[in-house]
């Protein structure tokens, strides 16, 4: 795996719209295979970056190579090997779902018959077979989005850009999209997934770049990102509140770091990333006769990561419905 060229390599990408530097010097290395998460709130520059990488927008500065080709000079080579599903379903509303896929199949070079066959296969997988003969304008948001993704996969591309594929979807549709993403990974396609949902990046992505105000503010595996922000913490609750000073000393000695006393008199916590040390500390407490009624190891959420990295909260509209999974 070491010699494989990265799927995407961008350095110093800039895009200026009028007075706004929508993308302000983005460096990015996306390895081949797996899911790369591109995380940021609305207006952070995700879509603009993706459009430059997908050869739809010329960069004002910097350069990028996608699948080993230059996005400006060798755009057509890239187009033949990647596909993009934009933020807004880019399918023809007047045509039926089936016709949309046949049209795109023909534009890829298939005969009408082969395109129709391929279209049927995709519609079946995307749970749209019953709606194949209906005009897309009668589709629900989730159906449109699924058709849009299907339209990107008529020939399985080497690289897929999915720009907020689950924004505004109900949990069932979103799970279907997630399954498709996992399938793509199984067949060896590299997926660049933009999302404003931290949970989505956490669940699907092997690596994540966090973008804010046109700049990458952090990059790494979801685990690394969490660790970089200050790892999780161990929260300990004691049977007897008056043993807390002793517990505080033991935790400070074994785990180290700043022990925080909770508002409740019988609870305290300390930042800890290493479960072994936490185990050792619990043993020490028990040896010293400090009875523990409960303890909990908590990872920082990506929400906390985002807050710590950017100094402001991520846009978490519609976050509630994600918990239904």
């Amino acid at each position: 795996m070491t010699a494989v060229e990265p799927a995407i390599e961008a350095s110093g990408l800039v895009k200026v719209f009028g007075e706004t530097r929508a993308v302000d010097g983005v460096d990015l290395v996306v390895p081949t295979g797996g899911v790369y998460g591109f995380l940021g709130p609305n207006g952070a520059g995700k879509t603009t970056t993706v459009r430059m990488l997908a050869t739809l927008l010329h960069p004002d500065g910097g350069s990028a190579r996608v699948l080993g080709r230059d996005v400006v000079r060798e755009a057509d080579d890239i187009r033949a090997r990647m596909s993009l599903t934009g933020q807004y379903a880019s399918v023809d509303e007047q045509l039926t779902g089936g016709e949309n896929l046949v049209l795109l199949g023909r534009l890829l070079g298939f005969t009408k018959a082969v395109a129709a066959e391929r279209g049927e296969e995709l519609l079946a997988v995307f749970d749209l077979a019953d709606a194949a003969g209906r005009q897309v304008k009668t589709y629900s948001g989730g159906m449109r989005r699924r058709l849009d993704i299907a339209a990107s996969l008529i020939v399985t591309p080497e690289l897929v850009f999915l720009d907020e594929p689950t924004t505004g979807l109900d949990p069932r549709s979103r799970n279907q999209v997630w399954d498709v993403i996992r399938s793509l990974v199984d067949v060896g396609t590299t997926v660049l997934l933009t999302t404003q949902y931290l949970e989505e990046a956490d669940r699907l992505a092997d690596r994540v770049a966090v973008i804010d105000r046109g700049r990458i503010v952090a990059e790494g595996t979801p685990g690394e990102l969490k660790a970089s922000v200050g790892a999780g913490a161990v929260h300990v609750r004691l049977v007897e509140a008056d043993r807390r000073p002793e517990a505080e000393r033991i935790l400070a000695r074994v785990i180290g770091g700043q022990v925080r006393l909770a508002p409740e008199p019988d609870a305290l916590s300390v930042p800890a990333s290493d479960p072994e040390r936490v185990g050792a500390a619990l043993v020490e407490l028990s040896r010293a006769g400090v009875a523990v009624s409960g303890y909990r190891l908590a990872e920082p959420s990506l929400d906390e990561v985002f807050l710590a990295l950017t100094g402001h909260a991520a846009d978490v509209d519609e976050k509630a419905e994600e918990d239904a999974a």
Binding site: G109, V155, L184
Partner: peptide, 15 residues
Amino acid sequence: RPANRVLGTRARPER
């Protein structure tokens, strides 16, 4: 996954 079989085809016709 059910989609794997369908997505496994990477053959691309002539432009």
